[in-house]
Each structure stands twice: as structure tokens, then as C-alpha cells.
């Protein structure tokens, strides 16, 4: 047998197919396959972009979305562009005017949270205040906080329930709200294959919603079940949208990205308390600067018997529970 393709006994595509147009298409395809993958992808992206430009009209915005860089690589101008795009998208999708900011960590500040389990009555006011503040989806309902009702006299999380109803507090239960613990050794951050989530200088673990690929590895890695996934585009009434938004916290999310509690960084980085704290009718939630010896959380750590949830995992949470 000869190696020369010209003398091969195999029939060519042209000979096999009677339809002349189809044959031309097949030959063209074979030639294209010889191009490098990068060239191919570039061509396709260009074609898709061109198609989008032709069809939708929101040309530059879509182009920016596809060429969006990682949050950490954005310079001031890029960030302004991104903020403008996010605001324009909100106007398009929900018809609301929002104000997106990007507060950065304050120097000399490391946040921590303390929660008094003796006082918590499990009324779920914090869950709903959080949803309102953070613009989470209402259907399916996404709540960053999960309140566990645990049998008194036990610390068994496995036997706890989070779907209790009715009058609270139940006489034989105590209540343990669980949300993101902003761990110092966050397993979720290590699980992310694209570095779309990271820990900031003030201890808050954030997500770049534009970089997240939606693989949900972080959701599986979190031992506190603190991450939530947008299976659909978040549904939320325009009248209920909180217009004060942060780029890394409560801005309106797209479909297919992960989200989580950020200690309301758009509030706390300008000095305010988180929304869940301010709504608590029992005052069992305390928040402050871990590096300030006079802060409320430091007073609690000094004077109460605190514990952290699942300490044995070595996640070093910034969320402390205590009884008093």
C-alpha cells in the first residue's frame, strides 16, 4: 500500500456524496479542523460576538461581558466600566435604578461575628432581612442564613431541623443560626478551580460573580452549608430590590453563579452593622472589629465561653457562638 494520499484507494468526500453543496461543506470543515484550537475558538467567539451585535443591540455590553477580566485584575477605569454595565443591566432587566459601589477593606480591621445561643429564639427575622438586603432570589428562595432547631441538652446538628414552623421558641429546643463563617482557612476557596472566590484582608470571603463558572465545588467543600447556587436567574420584584449594592456583595446576580453571606460588606465596610444584626429582636447577634480590644466581639470573647462550629476541621471561623 502506498502512503501517498493521492494514490489512495479511498474515495474522496466529493465522490461519496452526490449533493455538491454538502460535499463542499465537508471539505471546508476538514480544512478548518487543521487550524489550531485557539484560532478556531477565536473565530467562533468573533462569529458569536458579531451575531450578538447584529441581533441584540446591547452590543458593547455583551462584548464587555465576554471579555470581562478577573476582579483582581481590574484597574479603576475597568471597574467604572463594570459598575456602569451592572447598573445598565439592572435597568434593563428590572427597570430599577441602582447604585453600585465597591468599598474596599478598611485598614486595621478584621471582622468577626458573635451569636448568643441563649437568646436566639429562632424567629427567622434575620433570614428575611438578609434576603431583602442582599437581593437574593425569592423563587426559588435563597436564604444565606439557616436556623437550626436543636434538641435542648444535645449539640447534635445531625438531628436538628431547619424547617420548623409555628410559635417560637419551642420549650424543648434551642436555635442555632448558621451562615458563612468567613473562615481564615476557607475550604471553599481552595476548592475553586478558577480562583473566583478569595479571602479579603478584613477576613471576608467574596465571590467574583463574573468569574464564577458555576461548578459548585465550593458549595460541596463548605462544611457549614453556607453557599447558595443560582439555578435560575434570580427572581425578585423590582420594588423589593435594594438599590444600594456592592460589586462583591449584594449586586443582582446572573444565573449560574454561586453566592454567599459577605457580612453585608457594602454596609460593614462603611461602618454600619450587618442587616441580620439590626433586625434581631433579641439582640443575640454581635458584630465588630476583632482587632479592636474594646469592640463588642472582643468583649464577648474575653468574658464568655465561646465556641466555634466544627472546630475539628481547622477552618478557623470568624463566627463565634456562645451561651451565657
Amino acid at each position: 500500500m502506498s502512503d501517498d494520499p493521492n494514490t489512495s484507494s479511498e474515495p474522496s468526500a466529493q465522490e461519496l456524496v452526490d449533493d455538491e453543496d454538502l460535499a463542499t461543506w465537508l471539505v471546508a470543515g476538514a480544512e478548518k479542523a487543521q487550524a489550531t484550537r485557539r484560532n478556531f475558538l477565536t473565530t467562533m467567539a468573533g462569529a458569536a460576538g458579531a451575531a450578538a451585535i447584529a441581533s441584540t443591540g446591547c452590543d458593547t455590553r455583551l462584548w464587555e461581558k465576554y471579555t470581562q477580566k478577573h476582579y483582581k485584575e481590574l484597574n479603576a477605569a475597568d471597574k467604572q466600566k463594570l459598575i456602569a454595565r451592572v447598573e445598565a443591566e439592572a435597568a434593563d432587566r428590572y427597570g430599577v435604578e441602582i447604585k453600585v459601589g465597591d468599598p474596599r477593606p478598611l485598614p486595621g480591621v478584621g471582622y468577626a461575628y458573635a451569636l448568643n445561643l441563649s437568646y436566639c429564639i429562632g424567629c427567622r427575622r434575620c433570614e428575611y432581612a438578609c434576603a431583602r438586603e442582599n437581593n437574593t432570589s425569592r423563587d426559588p428562595e435563597i436564604h444565606y442564613i439557616r436556623v437550626l432547631a436543636i434538641e435542648k441538652g444535645t449539640m447534635s446538628v445531625e438531628e436538628s431541623e431547619s424547617d420548623y414552623e409555628g410559635a417560637v421558641p419551642s420549650p424543648d429546643k434551642y436555635y442555632m443560626p448558621v451562615q458563612c463563617h468567613q473562615c481564615d482557612h476557607p475550604p471553599c476557596v481552595r476548592a475553586c478551580p478558577v480562583e473566583a472566590t478569595w479571602k479579603e484582608k478584613d477576613g471576608i470571603v467574596v465571590v467574583d460573580y463574573d468569574w464564577c463558572i458555576g461548578c459548585r465545588y465550593c458549595e460541596a467543600a463548605c462544611p457549614y452549608w453556607a453557599r447558595r447556587f443560582n439555578f435560575g436567574a434570580p427572581t425578585i420584584r423590582p420594588s423589593e430590590i435594594n438599590p444600594v449594592q456592592g460589586l462583591l456583595s449584594n449586586r443582582l446576580r446572573p444565573m449560574g453563579v454561586i453566592e454567599k453571606c459577605t457580612f453585608c460588606l457594602h454596609r460593614t465596610r462603611v461602618g454600619r452593622y450587618p442587616a441580620c444584626l439590626e433586625v434581631c429582636p433579641t439582640g443575640s447577634r454581635k458584630f465588630g472589629n476583632l482587632l479592636d480590644p474594646n469592640s463588642e466581639v472582643r468583649q464577648i470573647i474575653q468574658s464568655k465561653r465561646i465556641f466555634v462550629f466544627k472546630e475539628e476541621l481547622g477552618t478557623i471561623p470568624r463566627f463565634y457562638y456562645y451561651f451565657d
Partner: peptide, 10 residues
Amino acid sequence: RFQALPAPHP
């Protein structure tokens, strides 16, 4: 005692 708000329905 008072009523808890309903559990979320994912």
C-alpha cells in the same frame, strides 16, 4: 412567644 417566619422553600 411569637410566630416564626416561614421556612424558605427552595
